[in-house]
Design a protein around this nucleic acid. Structure first.
Lengths: 193, 193
DNA sequence: GTTAATTTATGATCCAGATCATACTTAAAT
DNA sequence: ATTTAAGTATGATCTGGATCATAAATTAAC
């Protein structure tokens, strides 16, 4: 796995504290970021300060390549949502990795394809579907890595920031879905049935 | 360029007539589609029949790889918007191309990165911005390959289908932008100032 | 274990943009 | 050159979800 490869090749992780900004919009990309431990959120923020969550990245994932590869400045903030160890791989080293390891290159293509899938799905939702449908789709998507009768580790605010809705709306819809037995609520937590 | 490579290697284009459906949602991906000539639109359609334009592809571009590479069925329809010659490259052949031509692999990574950029930008718009802002951003994006005082070859309906708005709303906003001299209207056509 | 900060909850009001309806203009088809 | 279809235009009404306000329940911090 890639992180191990990097550590074996003497790349050192940097420490980011919860809340630290890793990069911000407008900055010129110089590196790709591999998460050894921790979690980050990638968000765009509009003029009113409203956040939209473009993605959440956790241990063993990486982020920041698209901007680097197309040589455009970042669109989003990336912020550590908990203390994290992140290996910052300089652009040139990343390109070398791609060149020298076709299997990694292939993996990257698949990763990018997955992200495109998610974004296409959400675009369709935001463009055409009403609040309830959006939340249903989003929850179904998030439930896919959650066991039965386990909880979703996501707040209503985060669901709002992923779906383009407001917290109050999300809260009302979750309640409704719970009434319709599509999910369970346990002390506020959303539980997969 | 890739199309030339394919033709030189004896891949033959298929003909699709205007309106022909190249693939549809749910179908299992078996190929990647290279456009020799013509144009296609990729659209998702919701239960009410409302379309959302996920992308427009023209000569020398290709489409359909993400679904193939992550091995998931298609989300969208792809429809020829004019008579088109399209080289249908079977999955295995496409994978072979990727393996044998690292430069192509690199190009693909960049292409996917570009598409991600566009989708991230539009997600932010659909999630957080009002109609006028969305249309401004979208038009600015489309104007980037349009000369000064040249027209945008896009209808109001298409702008609506790319922005998640309704035609009437787009028409009203375009009119307003024209009043504000942000663009010119010539017999209905949108002209870059 | 107590205080502070998040998160969840719920009602009341408001408004941007959807929807409906109808007409005009431009481009395409025959 | 006409008919037909597609696209643009504009007013009137309606509505889903935003916004505002206020409080209760959890969780985190000290």
């Amino acid at each position: 796995m890639t992180i191990k490869y990097l550590l074996d090749n003497n790349f050192k992780p940097s420490l980011y504290k919860k809340g630290d900004v890793i990069y911000e919009p407008g900055a010129y990309p110089r590196a790709v970021y591999f998460i050894k431990s921790g979690k980050v959120r990638m968000v765009t923020v509009n003029d009113d300060g409203k956040e939209f969550i473009q993605g959440i990245f956790k241990a063993n994932e990486y982020f920041g390549e698209p901007a680097l590869l197309v040589n455009k400045s970042y669109l989003a903030y990336t912020i550590a949502t908990q203390d994290s160890e992140i290996i910052v791989v300089k652009g040139e080293d990343f390109l070398k990795m791609l060149k020298e390891h076709p299997d990694f290159s292939m993996k990257l293509i698949q990763t990018l394809s997955h992200r495109l899938f998610y974004k296409s799905m959400m675009l369709e939702e935001l463009a055409n579907e009403h609040a309830e449908h959006r939340i249903r789709t989003l929850i179904a998507y998030l439930f896919k890595d959650v066991e039965h009768s386990q909880e979703l580790k996501v707040t209503r605010q985060q669901l709002a920031d992923m779906s383009g809705l407001r917290v109050e709306t999300v809260i009302r819809i979750i309640k409704k879905l719970s009434d319709q037995k599509e999910l369970k609520l346990l002390r506020g937590k959303i539980i997969r049935i």
